[in-house]
Computed example of a mutant assay.
Amino acid sequence: MREKYEEDVAGPFISIQDEIMQKYAKPGDSIPTILLDEALKEGYFAFNRQDGETLSFKIKYDNGSWEYNLEK
């Protein structure tokens, strides 16, 4: 990300990952999987619970920050 953008996209990207995990993660959850589009501006952040439930978040970079929405 640092090589692709002049602005700091990586710092906010790490922050949004931390924000999601702090709010939603529980002990025993899997390591998150992150999928981004070719432009590195939107994608999904997902992880599984021990009971098999999957939490999936749509993430998008816009106006200098990353936003997310929990998809059900």
Rank of each mutant, 00 (worst) to 15 (best):
S56V: 11
I34T: 07
L40K: 09
F47M: 08
N63M: 14
I14R: 08
E71A: 10
Q22M: 13
S15W: 15
E6I: 00
E38Q: 14
A25L: 02
M1E: 10
I16K: 05
S15H: 11
K41R: 13
D8N: 12
K60L: 15
R49V: 02
D18H: 06
F13M: 05
N63L: 15
D37N: 07
K41V: 14
N69R: 13
M21C: 06
G11P: 00
A39G: 09
G28L: 07
I20S: 02
I20R: 05
D51K: 01
F45A: 05
A46P: 00
G43T: 07
S15F: 12
K4Y: 09
Y5A: 10
S15Q: 15
P27N: 10
A10N: 08
T54Q: 12
G43D: 11
E67S: 12
M21G: 01
M1F: 09
E53C: 09
A39P: 02
P32I: 10
E38I: 09
S30C: 04
K72T: 10
G43P: 07
Q50A: 15
I59D: 01
I31W: 04
K41F: 13
R2D: 14
A25M: 04
W66Y: 04
Q17H: 01
D62R: 04
N48M: 14
M21P: 00
E38Y: 11
L70I: 06
P27A: 13
L35F: 12
Q50T: 03
D8R: 04
K41H: 10
N63R: 15
F47H: 03
F45H: 01
F47V: 01
R49D: 06
